[in-house]
Design a protein around this nucleic acid. Structure first.
Lengths: 148, 148
DNA sequence: TATTGTTATACTCTATAACTATA
DNA sequence: TATAGTTATAGAGTATAACAATA
């Protein structure tokens, strides 16, 4: 793909992409195993994590997750059947449905977060404190939109 | 989770974990959309990417992907039906099956790689060349096993 | 009319169990 | 006996199309 005469702007970009992709797959794999240890799929754990500090409608959840509302309707239905969350009519809009965690769901969300932190420790622990701060800053730069 | 009296070793770890998780989800989402633009699932594109520079058995692919061999058997079957790869008997072991890309599969793997690079450009382009090198190094440190 | 949500449907991904063929 | 692969089966995740209720 790259050539010996690549532009300065593209220097090292392919290496960055490779590292970013590999790290992402590795991280998602760790998260999936962490979720599985609590009998959850990664998507289910994401739902719990989102609802940990806010209640939301089906449509809002779909927006956060980047999934179709019909998909979220199914996810919420399965989680509700497991007793992890509940539906309630939105007081302001009769069409909308509010979703929020049950006590059991909140407990599981907390356990999941702790599990994730300890599961990723073997990776994050390879860095010094200074490196960890540096990496955090770089990743946040990657995540946030460039100034307009 | 964290307290004001956290140990020096844990300083900033939760922020790093948050950034790592968010970046990973964002990256996987971008990759999934890139794959979808070529009518592939992310897993199918991973298979093509792995086979791009080597042929492999079902078991080897399962190892690379972290999936069960029955899952890979299904993935390979569907990709074969689409004309993207082929099976052939392994010459050294009558039980094993070699899998390799067809010309069409190789073309698609190439197109997918290009699509990924351009899809991630809005993210990676936010960094200067020096920052990109720094991030690559940090991610590689995260990925590789600590020296024994 | 437009929006929110659900249901029906279909396909992919995934793993477990049972099986065949080869080592 | 052990290993490589396939098939049958089952369930989760996902989206499209059609629909009901509300705005």
């Amino acid at each position: 793909m790259t050539t010996s005469s690549e532009s300065a702007a593209g220097a090292g970009r392919q290496e960055l992409i490779d590292a970013l992709v590999l790290t992402s797959f590795a991280t998602i794999a760790v998260l999936s195993r962490a979720a599985a240890e609590h009998d959850l799929s990664l998507t289910q754990l994401r739902v719990l994590a989102i609802l940990r500090d806010r209640r939301g409608t089906i449509g809002e959840l779909a927006g956060y997750l980047g999934l179709d509302k019909t998909t979220v309707s199914g996810l919420v239905g399965r989680a509700e059947k497991k007793g992890l969350l509940q539906r309630a009519q939105n007081p302001a809009d009769g069409r909308a449905v509010d979703v929020f965690l049950t006590a059991e769901g909140a407990r599981l969300a907390q356990a999941g977060a702790a599990q994730i932190a300890s599961s990723l420790a073997p990776m994050t622990g390879k860095l010094t404190t200074a490196q960890a701060r540096q990496l955090t800053t770089l990743l946040e730069t990657l995540l946030h939109e460039a100034a307009p």
